[in-house]
Amino acid sequence: MMIQVNQKTIDEPAILAEMQYHPADSQERAMTKAAESLVIGELLRQRAAKLGLQVTDESKKSSDNDFLAALIEREVAIPKADEESCETYYQQNTERFMTSPLLEVRHILLAAAPDDELDRVNAKIVAEQIIKQLREGEDFARLAQQHSACPSSATAGGLGQISRGQTVAEFERQVFTANEGLVPNPVETRYGFHVVTVDRKIAGKQLPYETVKDKIETYLNEKVERKAVAQYIHTLIQDANIQGFDFVVSDSPLLQ
């Protein structure tokens, strides 16, 4: 593979050397990401040279991000989020600004390794049988002591009071949307299958605008900046003569 960017050559050895910084699920994908990064870097350096920007620090070699920052400062006006924009975002996304609900939960873990398909099938079957027993009036504590692979079996399966972020994502995703009482189906996680009872659910509370406005302002400013950077790089690409590479910049590392 050899690429030309406005008559400047990027050869295959350079692309192969760059691949180490772009892990991917295939060699072809890694090579594409590496080539894309090198092309963007070359475009930034060429534009900086054309404008006469002195980016290089004598103490270190300037990175692509250094050139990008200098060019954005020189050529792109990035608006900042004002109070009205922040308040509007808050009002339109109030569900994002809530304290975590609190749950009092008991569970029975039927352990199964993620890569053991047969074991997971069996664990799910046992979990379904336990749910059936609980519906028929069996004692949760006794079944937890008998079946659960979690240390909580010693305390009737109780996990105490939990909030978001305290359990693995797949458990949280299912349990925090459940109603109070016995969850009707086994909850699957990387650890196996869980029989879960939500004993109490305390709803989260709305956070006042004043406590989150700085976070909203930062988020909106970063969002606008990312869009401006993407548009700027896209403009450089459109104006360039690039041969040997079909450009897609949507997931370029410089745009993350």
Rank of each mutant, 00 (worst) to 15 (best):
L236C: 10
S153I: 00
A35L: 02
A144G: 04
V187D: 01
I162N: 04
L44N: 03
K213N: 14
L71Y: 04
S250M: 06
S163F: 01
E73L: 10
E225S: 10
H107N: 14
A178W: 06
A123K: 01
E75T: 04
E75H: 08
A111Q: 14
I10K: 01
V39C: 07
A77W: 08
A178E: 11
F140Y: 09
F97K: 04
F171H: 12
S152R: 10
Y191C: 00
K223E: 15
T94F: 07
S85Q: 13
E172Q: 07
A144I: 02
A149C: 06
S26C: 09
S59E: 15
G157Q: 00
I162W: 03
D64S: 13
P23S: 08
L159I: 01
A17I: 02
R74F: 10
R164F: 03
E210I: 09
D115Q: 13
Q129M: 10
E117W: 09
P253I: 09
L255M: 09
N65L: 09
H107V: 03
S85I: 06
I233T: 02
K124E: 15
V121E: 15
D246H: 12
E172A: 06
L44W: 08
R47W: 04
I162F: 01
V212K: 02
M31C: 13
R106D: 15
F67T: 00
T56Q: 14
L255W: 00
E117L: 12
E75I: 03
L159M: 14
A127D: 06
A34L: 04
E138S: 14
P23E: 12
L110D: 00
D119C: 08
I40Y: 02
M19E: 15
R45M: 11
N185D: 15
G160Y: 07
N221W: 05
E138T: 12
S252Y: 03
E138K: 12
L182E: 10
I108E: 07
N241G: 08
P208L: 05
M31W: 08
Q146P: 04
A24G: 13
E138V: 07
L102D: 07
D11R: 10
I130S: 02
E225R: 12
V39L: 11
G137R: 06
A228G: 04
L38H: 03
N93C: 06
S37R: 07
A228F: 02
P253V: 11
Q145C: 04
N122G: 13
R106K: 14
V212W: 05
S59M: 11
G52W: 08
R164C: 05
R96T: 04
L159C: 15
Q231P: 00
V105T: 15
A169V: 14
G160K: 06
E188P: 07
H194F: 06
A48Q: 03
D57W: 05
G52R: 08
S63Q: 11
E75V: 03
A203N: 14
A48I: 04
L134D: 07
I216W: 02
R200L: 14
A240H: 09
F193T: 01
G181R: 08
L254R: 10
A156H: 11
V76M: 04
